[in-house]
Amino acid sequence: MSLDPATVRRIARLARIGIDESDVPALQGELNGILGWVEQLNEVDVEGVTPMVGTGHAALRTRPDVVTDGNCRDAVLSNAPDGVGPFYTVPKVVE
């Protein structure tokens, strides 16, 4: 599998990363390098092998339905660059 320049630009847009047109060839080379490396896995015969979803055999942990958290607005908003009163704010997003 190999990425063309258009796909590189599309991936960047989906990830909301602004790139210069001049960066595209270098990124294309790096991404294709990564894909090529991962593609080596295709050489392994996995016919009949159950997909592995984790290294542990532990079951997913769950918690009881109890309110134990929240009410920490100051901490929640501590990194907000432009908080107003009890809110985060962002540049206006309207459909």
Binding site: F87, T89, P91, K92, V93
Partner: peptide
């Protein structure tokens, strides 16, 4: 998202 609180910004309540 609250869009009617400010002319330039949207306010976010999580």
């Amino acid at each position: 998202s609250l869009h009617d609180q400010d002319p330039a910004r949207s306010f976010i309540d999580l």
